[in-house]
């Protein structure tokens, strides 16, 4: 029997063998190991014992979930809240900008190809560079954002007319907002991430837009549908599969986002703070700076389970669209 399988499928099995080996040894095996590790007390002193570190059952999970005074719990809630907000804002912003940008460059105009190419610029920048660059741009005094908004455009004067309050120091100079500390941090990480990822959404939407036949619009125009009606009743429904894909992409990449946040604060040396910390940097710190591998593995296992549920929900929500598309 085995011999039969081998001779019948020799060629394809040989073809996939390297990939299967790679998957087994560097994906499946580490994940199983990670699940085991999450039940061990694996830290700096027991790392040499490998998988023979003391078995503690679900103690790590319990610590994370239920022991409110545990050191591991510090900032975990903040990280979870930030991750959720970050993912929602980034995915939403990416989709909005992506559709907008795609509609803008889907039209026919002179230099369309150039505009499309230039719009892709921000997508190619390595994300650690995005973190460094925006970390510089957000600086309170040296950063270009505050310089443009307040030194050049005098946003404080403009908005004080509508009752926005600004603080001034003793000599009457405006105290510019701090972007990298306090609650602003969330925006300081959301905006660069949207900037980095929206061209990808635009590319996807452009592909989706170009697959919509022109005749549909012509027929709708004949029936007297306005442009806005055409958008909401034809374009948007037909783009739903694309939106579904981008939502999935956004969920996965943003929940697992690491580079931008970890490079933005002190160029990789700093702590993102209460409003800027995400789950990945948090788990990373727990694992590789506090050397709690067991806890890190437990956290990431739980995160994986949560993500599976989320992806399942996603699938149920968008199942019909995907089969249509």
């Amino acid at each position: 029997m085995r011999r039969d399988v081998w001779s019948a499928y020799k060629v394809p099995l040989l073809f996939v063998a390297p990939a299967v080996l790679g998957l087994l040894f560097l994906h499946v095996f580490p994940i199983v190991q990670g699940l085991v590790l999450s039940m061990l007390e694996s830290n700096k002193s027991t790392i040499e014992q490998y998988l023979h570190a003391p078995f503690v059952g679900f103690e790590n999970y319990k610590q994370i979930l239920f022991s409110s005074d545990s050191q591991i719990r510090q900032g975990l809630f903040d990280a979870i809240r930030n991750t959720i907000l970050y993912t929602v804002f980034v995915t939403g912003g990416t989709i909005l900008l992506g559709i907008g940008g795609a509609l803008l460059v889907h039209r026919n105009f002179k230099g369309r190809a150039v505009a499309r190419t230039l719009l892709l610029f921000s997508w190619i920048i390595p994300s650690y560079v995005v973190g460094m660059l925006w970390g510089f741009m957000w600086q309170q005094e040296e950063g270009i954002v505050n310089q443009l908004l307040f030194d050049r455009m005098h946003l404080d004067v403009m908005t004080s007319w509508i009752g926005v309050h600004w603080d001034y120091d003793a000599i009457g100079n405006l105290i510019k907002p701090r972007w990298l500390t306090g609650e602003n941090t969330l925006w300081a990480i959301v905006i660069p991430t949207v900037w980095r990822f929206w061209p990808f959404a635009m590319v996807m939407f452009l592909a989706g837009l170009s697959s919509i036949p022109k005749e549909i619009y012509e027929a709708a125009a004949m029936d007297g549908a306005k442009k806005s009606e055409q958008f909401f009743h034809i374009t948007l429904p037909l783009l739903r599969p694309v939106i579904a894909m981008i939502v999935l992409q956004g969920l996965i990449t943003n929940v697992y986002s690491f580079n931008i946040v970890s490079m933005m604060f002190g160029n990789g040396a700093g702590f993102p703070g209460k409003y800027g910390d995400l789950l990945m940097p948090n788990i990373f710190r727990n694992s590789f700076q506090m050397w709690n591998f067991g806890v890190g593995a437990a956290m990431s296992s739980m995160l994986m389970v949560v993500m599976m549920v989320v992806v399942m929900l996603w699938y149920r929500r968008f199942r019909e669209d995907l089969s249509n598309g």
Binding site: V28, P30, I31, G34, Y50, I252, S300
Partner: peptide, 24 residues
């Protein structure tokens, strides 16, 4: 199974590989 595994690996957080690989 192979196709499914390939897709599924994309949903696993990288750090879940990283910790065991580092210890390994």
């Amino acid at each position: 199974l192979l196709s499914m595994t390939i897709l599924a690996t994309q949903m696993v957080p990288g750090i879940l590989y990283l910790i065991p690989i580092f210890i390994l």
